[in-house]
Write a protein that binds this DNA or RNA. Structure first.
Length: 1084
RNA sequence: GGGCUCAUAGCUCAGUUGGCUAGAGCGCGUCGCUGAUAACGACGAGGUCCCAGGUUCGAGUCCUGGUGGGCCCA
């Protein structure tokens, strides 16, 4: 069957949709699974994508890797699971559902009904999972889409219960307190990651306050804070032991303050362009000045202050009573000399550093706020007021009671809720934790896996080493129901490990729960009996779980650990996982390792590969709000997903990829179009010639040098491809492929073009066809995992439609194997030398100012090595044609035609010579240029003694000290590179001149034919009219040549009546009129 | 403050275990080609391989210390 015509201009997105339809129609994916069923397994584990929005282009990077490595392993015949995952539970889904309803606080949700709310969250996850499924298919991502896992599934949730139960049995689950960023409006803690989203610049009233020392009447600590309301909860004041402090006397009072803090100018930590908008801060010295005269009476180290007790500013409040006896100066290394007063206000109930410090030292925690950010009743005049509305009142009060030293407006970046934009507050809360004192075991697991890049392991170990206990609770609604039942009567708590255990332990509520998923509010109906005190009404705690738990149980829950252990053993651990690097060390990678180490004491993956972020065209992060984010659908239909996939595949994974019009265009130009053009060139000729790959075959003997060379290169590429895919380094393959396409297009195809044109099936033509056919089909298979659509389309035309027994899809065929017998390194190096010599000769031709159309008599090569000499001998024809010369020859030396001249470079030489400049200059000028060139090449030096009597009279001459130029005389143009010299004879004989003119004419005729809309095969009658004698001679001399090249049946020197095409051009300054008409062929 | 990482042409990036004259694409300039090509090709200009030391016959590459950027932790 003939090849289908290939349009050189293709709508790639349309072609991709066509291939999608073909796969759908032929059930190509299912067929592939059937083919590999029962074969050795390759286990890939998918990190779940958050099913909360449509995909952006950034999602496509990881998914491209996931698909292409799976396709490679399938092409080796391996059986795969092809299971995609969706991450469904968590605050991000809740937020979107809240937005849709216009909810502002948790109370709105409770009023709406937790059951209804949770159901809507589920619906939303399902909705976007469906959209992402369709988008992934469009990406060409072959997965078992009917069998994706959802982290909200019962199996997954109960799997986590089993994990938590195991932790509980080892005594690792506990209820603890921590101070964390809290949004009073949303009523929830905010994680570190969420907090990073929400920093905004705001102004706060900051104050310097006095803490009077109890044992030293009249002496005060000077303390600074940007959050005056937290003074209500002050417990201690911290100094840095080794830092120098000063004791300042003003009036009857003394103040302790950090020496540098006291003396130095203060600046606001503001970045960039906003700087000028901010008032500068008053130095502490200046504050004192404002209050009158002062003097420094003593310098002392911070350690001498430690242990002193003081009166707090709010000791009269009932809520602060616990702090009164605790007020003292403590030591803290993190106190800085650049911010505040060098003495830091510590409120362990209101700050996270404060809390940690307080915990170490056993300080009491004062937690003044309710969930909604309002003060508790025991805080006097503050009671019932919100923390962010009391600054003025507090300042006035401090002033009245003599605690205020100074106040100011302070502008800084402060965390805000990323959802409602309210200011966050640090608040002491009860949360549930997993103790992490077994981190060494997790670190051992991490070390057992291979990390790509390797430093990923160091990074993970660093995190594991430093991380605190894992806070697994969140005071929200939509998420894993933490299986912790806590007895309200005695405080005893237990963790249940699964549905069966829950049923067995249920005292009441089972009927209400049964049939529902283990989520709030349904699971909360179930009450159990306290094993300690016998209370029969023990409830589950209200909290839901950390979403990373959801995603990290999947190597167990989705692989049948709980339901089908035999199956699980076959697929665990995964051979490969790949995800975006930033963030995942403390998220998914960490959680996976933790859960898996607890469950089976080993890592759930053998190889973990990470990749970077997707940035915009200019290297900036993509943000919806900045308008530089790109949706997946938009990009897919604009540039096509093959181009997108290639862009992702060719980027070094550990760095970021720049995605935008410019970079996509580059991919199209360097890879997609050249590859398609070679294919369409071949295919359209093959149609005309009725090439049949089974009929027109060739033998090794018949292959040309170029054929052997390109096959050698191809087989090398196959070996590289196997290595790159199996080591997960596809970027390397992309680089090599690009190089291959380039040499294939610009050397093999271009140099071989004419071999395809003849009418007869000569051995050479068969050889050209069958070689290029093999190269096309093989290379197509190599890159199929990366560009599945384009390669499928090419395969369909070149292979599938040619043979009944061919596989239905390129993705059903097995990966090519490299044939070492076809690799010829010597030939490759000779071709490389040829390319280099031709390039040099072009440079020489350019220098000659004679265009390539003008034939010249001779090219002379002075080879630098044997390979170059062999190249000239073996590829003589190519030199002749490429450079349009009549003869090519080699010579050992070129001393007779090339003059080498040497000029001293006084810029560098002058400095070396100093006072010997004049003599040295002469000496250098007298050196033998050719010998100097040889000596200096490759970094050598020449020792010159100008004046033996002085030490500086001897210098080392280096390459940079001289300028070496070559001239080739009037008759030759030349170029050199290293030791290689090429020269072209510039002398034009009349014969050569005539041939040049003939070729110019041919070119103009060809253009005219094209403009006249003639078919390539149309015959013409040609008229060439010129009054110039030289043109006439040229036409006469090359009449046959012109006729055969332009398919002219007749060339006349008189004008044609009503020509189809006519043009007047100037050749060599002389006018010639060219016209033509399609010849009428008479059947003979 | 600690960990990891990056720094190569105007821009985006290659550069295996140290090895001949440090490369590509884009952009720029010049020329050419244009019956496979949404084009393309050739040639050219453009480099302190961030800085300073060290190891070595030899360092973009290895080591130490800085500077600057990124990520993470504190």
């Amino acid at each position: 069957m003939a090849f289908e015509k290939v349009e050189p201009k293709v709508d790639f997105p349309a072609l991709e949709r066509e291939m999608l339809a073909y796969w759908e129609k032929t059930q190509a994916f299912d067929k592939l699974r059937e083919l590999n069923q029962g074969n050795p397994k390759w286990s890939f584990l998918d990190g779940p994508i958050t099913a909360n929005n449509p995909m952006g282009v950034h999602h496509a990077w990881g998914r491209t890797y996931k698909d292409l490595y799976q396709r490679y392993h399938a092409s080796l015949g391996q059986e795969l699971r092809y299971q995609n995952g969706f991450d469904c539970q968590g605050l991000w889904v809740e937020v979107e559902v809240e937005k849709a309803h216009g909810f502002a606080t948790k109370k709105d949700i409770e009023k709406f009904g937790i059951g209804k709310f949770v159901q809507e969250c589920k619906d939303r996850a399902n909705h976007y999972a469906a959209i992402q499924t369709e988008q992934s298919k469009r990406l060409g991502y072959w997965m078992d889409w009917d069998n994706s896992y959802f982290t909200m599934s019962d199996e997954n949730n109960y799997g986590i219960w089993a994990f938590l139960k195991k932790c509980f049995e080892k005594g690792l689950i506990y209820k603890g307190k921590d101070v964390m960023p809290w949004c009073p409006r949303c009523g929830t803690g905010i994680s570190q990651m969420e907090m990073n989203e929400g920093y905004r610049e705001v102004g706060h009233t900051s104050v310097f306050v006095k803490f009077p020392l109890r044992d030293r009447p009249g002496e005060n600590l000077l303390v600074w804070t940007t959050t005056p309301w937290t003074l209500s909860s002050n417990v201690a004041a911290a100094v840095k032991p080794g830092m120098t402090y000063v004791k300042v006397k003003q009036g009857d009072e003394f103040f302790y303050v950090g020496k540098e803090n006291f003396e130095n100018a203060r600046s606001q930590p503001v970045e960039g362009a906003n700087k000028s908008n901010h008032p500068s801060l008053m130095a502490i010295t200046a504050m004192f000045k404002n209050n009158g005269e002062f003097e420094i009476v003593e310098e002392l180290l911070g350690e001498t202050l430690v242990g002193l007790t003081y009166d707090g500013p709010f000791d009269m409040l009932e809520g602060a009573s616990e702090a009164v006896g605790a007020h003292r100066v403590i030591a803290w290394e993190d106190v800085t000399a650049t911010e505040g007063a060098g003495i830091v206000h510590i409120a362990p109930g209101c700050g996270s550093d404060d809390y940690r410090l307080g915990k170490e030292l056993g300080l009491p925690n004062i937690a003044p706020l309710f969930e909604d950010g309002c003060f508790r009743p025991e805080f006097g005049y503050l009671a019932g007021k919100r923390f962010d509305q009391v600054a003025d009142e507090v300042v006035a009060d401090l002033k009245n009671r003599g605690f205020l030293f100074a106040k100011e407006q302070y502008i800084h970046r402060y965390p805000h809720c990323w959802r409602c934009k309210d200011e966050l507050v640090y608040r002491l809360v009860d949360e549930w934790f997993i103790k992490m004192d077994w981190r060494d075991e997790i670190m051992n697991s991490a070390k057992k896996a291979q990390w790509i890049p390797e430093w990923g392991l160091d990074r993970e170990l660093d995190w594991l080493h430093n991380m605190g206990d894992w806070m697994i609770s969140k005071k929200r609604y939509w998420g894993l129901a933490l299986p912790i039942w806590e007895c309200g009567a005695c405080g005893h708590f237990e963790v249940l490990g699964g549905k069966d255990e829950l049923e067995a332990r249920a005292e009441s509520g089972w009927e209400e729960f049964e049939g529902n998923s283990p989520h709030r509010p349904w699971v909360d109906e179930v009450k159990i009996c306290c094993t300690k005190c016998g209370d029969k009404n023990v409830s589950r705690v209200k909290e839901v779980g950390n979403p990373w738990l959801d995603a990290s149980i999947v190597p167990f829950s989705t692989m049948g650990y709980f339901s089908d252990p035999e199956y699980w053993k076959e697929w665990f651990p995964a051979d490969f996982v790949v995800e975006a690097l930033p963030g995942q060390f403390r998220n998914w990678f960490y959680a996976l390792l933790t859960v898996s180490t607890m469950m089976v004491e080993k890592p759930p993956f053998k190889v973990l590969k990470g990749h970077g972020l997707v940035l915009d065209d200019t290297g900036k992060p993509m943000h919806k709000s900045e308008g530089n984010a790109i949706w997946f659908d938009e990009a897919a239909e604009e540039i096509g997903v093959d181009a997108m996939r290639w862009l992702y595949a060719k980027t070094s994974p550990e760095r970021n990829v720049l995605f935008g019009p410019h970079h996509c265009d580059e991919v199209r130009r360097e890879m997609i179009l050249p590859w398609w053009n070679i294919y369409s060139f071949f295919c359209n000729l093959a149609r005309v010639d009725n090439f049949d790959p089974k009929e027109q075959t060739t033998t090794d003997d018949e292959r040309s040098l170029l054929d052997n060379w390109i096959l050698s290169d191809l087989n090398k590429l196959i070996a590289i491809a196997h290595e790159a895919y199996s080591k997960f380094d596809v970027a390397k393959l992309c680089n090599e492929s690009r190089r291959f396409i380039e040499v294939l297009s610009t050397w093999y195809v271009r140099r071989s073009r004419r071999r395809f044109y003849g009418p007869e099936w000569t051995a050479d033509k068969r050889s050209a066809y069958s070689t290029l056919y093999e190269v096309l089909t093989t290379f197509n298979r190599i890159i199929a995992p990366i560009v599945p659509f384009m390669s499928e389309s090419i395969y369909q035309n070149l292979v599938a439609n040619q043979a009944e027994d061919a596989a239905a899809s390129v993705h059903h065929t097995s990966f090519p194997q490299s044939n070492a017998a076809l690799i010829d390194d010597e030939l490759s190096s000779q071709v490389a030398a040829t390319l280099r010599l031709v390039s040099l000769a072009r440079s020489a031709r350019k220098d000659s100012k004679l265009k390539v159309r003008q034939p010249l008599a001779e090219l002379v090569v002075v080879p630098a090595n044997d390979v170059e000499g062999q190249a000239v001998a073996r590829f003589e024809d190519h030199f002749l044609e490429e450079l349009n010369v009549k003869k090519v020859s080699t010579r050992d030396g070129a001393a007779d035609t090339v003059t080498t001249t040497l000029k001293p470079n006084m810029k560098t030489l002058g400095a070396k010579l100093g006072r010997h400049a004049a003599a040295g200059r002469k000496m250098v000028a007298d050196l033998n240029p050719a010998e100097v060139e040889v000596s200096l090449r490759g970094g050598g030096t020449i020792s010159l003694t100008i004046d033996a009597s002085s030490e500086e009279g001897t210098i080392e001459l280096e390459a940079q000290d001289v300028v070496i130029t070559k001239s080739y005389g009037d008759d030759w143009a030349g170029a050199c590179d290293g030791a290689t010299i090429v020269m072209i004879d510039k002398r034009l004989t009349p014969e050569l001149k005539h041939e040049g003119i003939a070729r110019d004419i041919i070119r103009n005729v060809q253009n005219l034919r094209k403009d006249a809309g003639l078919d390539i095969a149309d015959r013409i009658t040609l008229s060439l009219c010129s009054e110039n004698a030289q043109l006439g001679e040229a036409i006469a001399a090359f009449n046959d040549y012109i006729a055969s090249e332009t398919l002219a049946t007749n060339i006349q020197t008189t004008p044609i009546d009503s020509p189809t095409g006519k043009v007047e051009v100037k050749l060599d300054g002389q006018t010639i009129s060219i016209s033509l008409v399609k010849a009428v062929l008479v059947d003979s």
